[in-house]
């Protein structure tokens, strides 16, 4: 029973979020919250464009999603791996540790990739403009 709740509640929340971004297309609505970092500084953060990318994916436009936020698409395999291990652990009662995420070098790579993406997507010239969520 407890295990079922541990699976159903997150699944319901995630489905709700996906339904929300399917119904309210972030590419068209103007009222969804803007990134506070972008609002304050005018620069893009590593998450800028993810609401629009999510709406793009949900409407089947993967190429467009890549343009809004490459990092989101790149992280999907990692997130799916993590979710799968989590679901297996919750359903079987195992405690499989995602060792992959617990190596110091992997953590460092993630950090470097995100910081590099943050810096590069703010450069105002080609080819880095293709990393920015706007200018398309």
């Amino acid at each position: 029973m407890k295990r079922a709740v541990a699976l159903v509640v997150p699944a319901a929340i995630i489905s709700g979020i996906l339904l929300f971004y399917f119904l309210f297309d972030a590419r068209k609505t103007t009222w969804l919250p803007q990134c506070p970092f972008h609002l304050l500084t005018g620069f893009y953060c590593p998450g800028c464009g993810s609401q629009r990318a999510l709406s793009s994916i949900l409407h089947g436009e993967f190429l467009q999603a890549l343009r809004f936020n490459v990092l989101l698409i790149a992280s999907l395999p990692l997130l799916m791996y993590s979710a799968t291990v989590m679901i297996v652990n919750k359903t079987t009662g195992n405690h499989i540790v995602q060792k992959f995420f617990y190596s110091a070098s992997f953590g460092r790579i993630v950090l470097i990739v995100i910081l590099a993406f943050w810096f590069l997507r703010n450069l105002p010239f080609f080819p880095f403009t293709s990393l920015s969520p706007n200018d398309h």
């Binding site: 919250p33 990134c35 506070p36 970092f37 972008h38 953060c45 590593p46 998450g47 800028c48 993810s50 609401q51 999510l54 936020n69 990092l71 989101l72 992280s75 995100i114």
Partner: peptide, 8 residues
């Protein structure tokens, strides 16, 4: 949180 929450 970094990718979806749009916050440093």
């Amino acid at each position: 949180a970094t990718i979806f929450c749009c916050l440093p």
